[in-house]
Design a protein around this nucleic acid. Structure first.
Lengths: 150, 150
DNA sequence: ATAGATAAGGTCAGTAAAGGTCAAAAAAGA
DNA sequence: TCTTTTTTGACCTTTACTGACCTTATCTAT
């Protein structure tokens, strides 16, 4: 098992056990415990406990310093609403792809839904409609599909 | 015996032995074991462990990366295949609706996927498309979305 | 007070360890 | 022979890990 996974598991475990979805660690202590360099703790936090993943990190340096990881429950449907409203009448291919990817990362939609969206606006499908209409089409499809997920 | 067959046999064997119809390999390790270049593993996976053959591949790069091969129940994916092939170049609104409904009843797709499909070909979306193209559009969208679910 | 000393955590660039892609060459089949 | 499948290798992208050096906070002796 990878070191990063071990660290992740340990933090998750602390979060489970905590009352308030919040865990406080000492960077050096945890690093020594699992046997890695301190900076790897930062790597794990940066790659797996991001706001996109629904976590907030606070920390303090100096004597008695700490790192606090808090799991925040983001309001799914209002976040989705926000995205839907941000889509205008047109949506180009790369913006669409990024939008779907971000929604997935933010855990607003699941992997299968993301794939279905990509499929619905895939080039294979787009081939069926006149080029001038593609952007309008993408916007309409993505919007309707997101609405279906609320 | 061909190298590709050896690799295939080895993966199959792992799948047999696994509890969950799923095997996890290290690409480089397996390549070294059977004596081929790593990229041939990709070739075998691409040519013999496709969704059409009833397999799903997931992988991760980077240190400690892996490739996971999962066998999916053939009935489901082959039934889906059958449906996909039965869709011609055009699909009218009511046939589409019935097709989605039937797939749901037959448990080939889940409720959420069904709703996403309905949304993707909803009248709101279709409004963006020239009437003569609507049937072609429906066929393309539904086909791609079903393929994404295999 | 305040200057060091000490005790945290932060950053970043570099290296290593995977897997992915693609096109060309070779082999096998038809 | 002609076409399809297999094999190979050069090059790419992503993820993980490490260590040197930096910043901030606290403590302690003057």
């Amino acid at each position: 098992m990878k070191m990063s996974d071990i660290i992740t598991a340990r933090i998750m475990q602390m979060l489970e056990q905590s009352e308030y979805n919040s865990a406080e660690i000492q960077r050096n202590e945890l690093a020594a415990l699992v046997g890695c360099v301190p900076s790897q703790i930062n790597y794990v936090l940066a790659s797996r406990f991001t706001p996109e993943h629904g976590f907030v990190i606070e920390s303090r340096r100096g004597g008695g310093g700490y790192i606090r990881i808090t799991r925040v429950s983001l309001d799914r449907s209002s976040a989705l609403m926000h995205i839907i409203n941000s889509i205008g009448g047109e949506l180009d291919a790369s913006t669409a792809r990024i939008l779907i990817e971000n929604s997935l990362q933010a855990d607003l939609i699941d992997g299968k839904s993301a794939e279905l969206m990509q499929a619905a606006i895939s080039s294979t499908v787009l081939r069926e409609i006149p080029p001038i209409l593609k952007d309008r089409f993408r916007a309409a499809v993505i919007k309707q599909m997101l609405i279906a997920l609320i």
